[in-house]
Amino acid sequence: APRKVEMRRDPVLGFGFVAGSEKPVVVRSVTPGGPSEGKLIPGDQIVMINDEPVSAAPRERVIDLVRSCKESILLTVIQP
């Protein structure tokens, strides 16, 4: 079942996760003590960023979407 995860941007750590460059977009790592800790799990597949589906989106679009979130971000993720 999809999970909705909302995180506030940390001034130092950002959102505190690293996503892979393949499709679908998969969470590779979560920064300890960062905003994503306890919310995202490595292996989570990101299916939506805010209200935009990203399963088939180019990597550049995913990066732009994350960067455009100055304060908070809403991710919809699934464990494949």
Rank of each mutant, 00 (worst) to 15 (best):
A1Y: 07
A1D: 11
P2I: 15
P2W: 08
R3P: 00
R3H: 06
R3S: 03
K4G: 02
V5W: 04
V5R: 02
E6C: 10
E6S: 13
E6R: 12
M7R: 00
M7Y: 01
M7W: 00
R8D: 15
R8Y: 10
R8G: 11
R8S: 13
R8L: 13
R8H: 10
R8P: 08
R9N: 06
R9E: 04
D10V: 05
D10C: 07
D10P: 00
P11T: 08
P11D: 10
P11R: 07
P11I: 06
V12A: 14
V12Y: 10
G14I: 02
G14N: 07
G14V: 02
G14E: 09
G14H: 04
F15C: 02
F15A: 02
F15E: 01
F15W: 10
F15S: 02
G16D: 01
F17S: 01
F17R: 01
F17V: 02
F17Y: 04
F17I: 04
F17G: 01
V18M: 09
V18L: 07
V18Y: 09
V18W: 04
V18N: 08
V18T: 09
V18A: 10
A19N: 04
A19G: 09
A19K: 03
G20C: 08
G20V: 11
G20M: 10
G20H: 12
S21K: 13
S21M: 12
S21A: 14
E22C: 09
E22G: 12
K23E: 11
K23W: 09
K23H: 12
K23L: 10
K23M: 13
P24C: 03
P24L: 02
P24G: 04
P24D: 03
P24N: 04
P24F: 02
V25D: 03
V26H: 06
V26F: 07
V26L: 11
V27Y: 00
V27K: 01
V27D: 01
V27A: 03
R28L: 12
R28A: 12
S29L: 07
S29D: 12
S29Y: 06
V30I: 09
V30Q: 01
V30N: 03
V30S: 02
T31K: 13
T31E: 13
P32G: 08
P32C: 10
P32R: 11
P32N: 10
P32Y: 07
G33Y: 07
G34I: 00
G34H: 03
G34E: 00
P35D: 02
S36H: 02
S36N: 02
E37F: 08
G38C: 06
G38P: 03
G38E: 06
G38R: 07
G38N: 09
K39A: 09
K39C: 12
K39E: 07
K39M: 11
K39D: 03
L40E: 00
L40I: 07
I41Q: 14
I41E: 15
I41G: 09
P42F: 04
P42Y: 05
P42A: 12
G43Q: 05
G43V: 00
G43A: 04
D44V: 01
D44Q: 04
D44T: 03
Q45W: 06
Q45M: 09
Q45A: 09
I46F: 05
I46P: 02
V47K: 08
V47R: 06
V47W: 07
M48E: 12
I49L: 08
N50F: 07
N50A: 07
D51W: 05
E52N: 11
P53L: 14
P53R: 12
P53N: 14
V54A: 05
V54G: 00
V54L: 05
V54F: 02
A57L: 15
A57Y: 15
A57K: 10
A57F: 15
A57N: 07
P58D: 10
P58N: 11
P58T: 12
P58R: 10
P58E: 10
P58I: 04
P58V: 06
R59F: 14
R59Q: 15
R59K: 14
R59A: 12
E60R: 11
E60I: 05
R61C: 10
R61P: 03
R61W: 09
R61G: 07
R61D: 13
V62H: 02
V62N: 02
I63R: 12
I63F: 15
I63D: 12
I63E: 12
I63Y: 09
I63W: 11
I63K: 12
L65P: 01
L65S: 06
L65N: 04
L65C: 06
L65W: 05
L65T: 08
V66Y: 04
V66P: 01
V66R: 01
V66N: 02
S68E: 14
S68H: 10
S68K: 11
S68R: 11
S68D: 11
C69N: 10
C69R: 08
C69G: 05
C69A: 14
C69M: 08
K70V: 06
K70P: 11
K70C: 08
K70E: 10
K70F: 05
K70A: 08
E71D: 14
E71P: 05
E71L: 05
E71K: 14
E71G: 11
S72A: 09
S72E: 15
S72Y: 07
S72G: 11
S72Q: 14
I73P: 03
L74Q: 15
L74K: 15
T76E: 13
T76W: 06
T76G: 13
T76M: 07
V77Q: 02
I78G: 09
I78D: 13
Q79E: 13
P80E: 06
P80Y: 04
P80N: 10
P80D: 04
P80I: 04
